[in-house]
């Protein structure tokens, strides 16, 4: 039978993973379903499990110099309840799963799961969040877009843990967040969309646009965003061109939740609406 380990603290956890390859379980809301065998049966974990949900070091939320550091084992509910978290971010977290699942599921888990449908990811991409990775001797910080390498894949090795997420506290003047799903609670997204614009003297100063569930990873392009900023400042913004840029990045599929066609059209429509409403 497979072992499970409950480390006493972060140091203990980081040491445990040096020699043993563990499946790291924080909230477990995805893992417990993935490994489920049925009523009365042990979930089928093929490697030992490391429980990290109760590590205090991973449950801290701090703000320093305009950056939030959120412990990887913070549940979405704890983020929603925390006064340091901006309302915009909370709006995204509030649409994840159901209240009970938000009480269990963690932000670190959502990131490490690296699903293109991960509900927190478009926001984190749009904010240029970075992922703090630790092993027993070092601590590194990696942009989320580099950390996630494919659907369900990321660069974390078995001797490392994601310990925190660092994200800037930013103010935007216009924000659109849309989770498109078959029902209003407890649903996986068909498409998710985050778009934010910041104005200065009615001139576009910054824009962030990210799409979820429509490609192997979250779709975001700083190049296109910069082109939008640049062209809108000199009045030469060509919306059709912007849309066609994103069209090359959005590669949705048909699945049990929706169709590629629908997903593509919705992305386009959301984008057109955003550009039309706020930028021109």
């Amino acid at each position: 039978m497979v072992a499970a380990y409950r480390p006493k603290n972060l140091k203990d956890a980081l040491e445990a993973i040096i020699y043993t390859e563990y499946i790291v379980l924080a909230g477990g809301t995805d893992l417990m379903v993935k490994k489920k065998q049925g009523a009365g049966l042990l979930p089928a974990f093929d490697k030992p499990v490391l429980f990290i949900a109760d590590l205090e070091e991973l449950k801290q939320i701090n703000e320093k110099e305009g950056y939030l550091t959120i412990g990887a084992a913070c549940s979405f509910s704890s983020l929603i309840d925390n006064p340091l978290i901006p309302a915009l971010y909370k709006q995204v977290f509030l649409q994840i799963a159901s209240p009970a699942v938000r009480n269990i599921a963690t932000i670190g888990g959502n990131i490490c799961n690296s699903s293109p449908a991960g509900d927190s990811l478009p926001l984190l991409y749009a904010l240029d969040a970075s992922i703090i990775i630790e092993n027993s001797c070092r601590r590194i910080e990696i942009p989320i877009a580099d950390f996630i390498t494919g659907p369900g894949r990321n660069m974390l090795t078995s001797s490392e843990l994601v310990t925190a997420i660092k994200l800037p506290v930013l103010h935007f003047d216009y924000v659109v967040y849309k989770k498109v799903s078959a029902r209003k609670s407890t649903a996986l997204s068909k498409v998710s969309f985050v778009a934010m614009a910041k104005l200065k003297d009615s001139r576009l100063e910054d824009v962030r646009i990210a799409f979820g569930s429509v490609a192997p990873t979250i779709v975001r392009s700083r190049d296109v965003e910069e082109a939008i900023i640049y062209n809108s400042s000199n009045g030469s913004l060509d919306k059709t061109e912007i849309i066609s840029y994103y069209t090359t990045l959005i590669k949705p599929i048909d699945d049990q939740r929706s169709t590629a066609f629908y997903r593509r059209q919705v992305c386009k429509r959301l984008l057109v609406d955003f550009l039309g409403n706020w930028l021109c």
Partner: peptide, 11 residues
């Protein structure tokens, strides 16, 4: 509030 089906005993 939590779903007991998603909780392993270790937690």
């Amino acid at each position: 509030l939590a779903n007991a089906c998603l909780y392993p005993m270790g937690k």
